[in-house]
Amino acid sequence: MKTNLVYFAWVRERIGKPEEEIELPDSVVTVSDLLNHLKSLGEEYENALQFPDVIRVAINQEHVEHDESIVGAREIGIFPPMTGG
């Protein structure tokens, strides 16, 4: 299944693109699995996601924890802690 990934702030800068559509292996079930899978895709991903505990994730534009299932997600947002306001 293809999933649309969108990146923001320094996650976007380190990966080097604002979004991409990728094919995920069946073994990728949770947000945690996804972050580990992305880290294996190259140095830029490793650099962006080296401390997964600080990375925030949204599925279909809603915040989720790292143990959440990503099955069926249309859009997954990956970004640093928020600093608006």
Partner: peptide, 28 residues
């Protein structure tokens, strides 16, 4: 509203330094 907006609404601030150097993303 402000306390939750700051920690939950997806916004990020990047600084532009006055001396023209590339600024950093503000840390939470």
């Amino acid at each position: 509203m402000m306390d939750f907006l700051k920690t939950s609404a997806p916004f990020w601030k990047k600084e532009h330094a006055a001396d023209g150097t590339a600024g950093d993303w503000i840390a939470a």
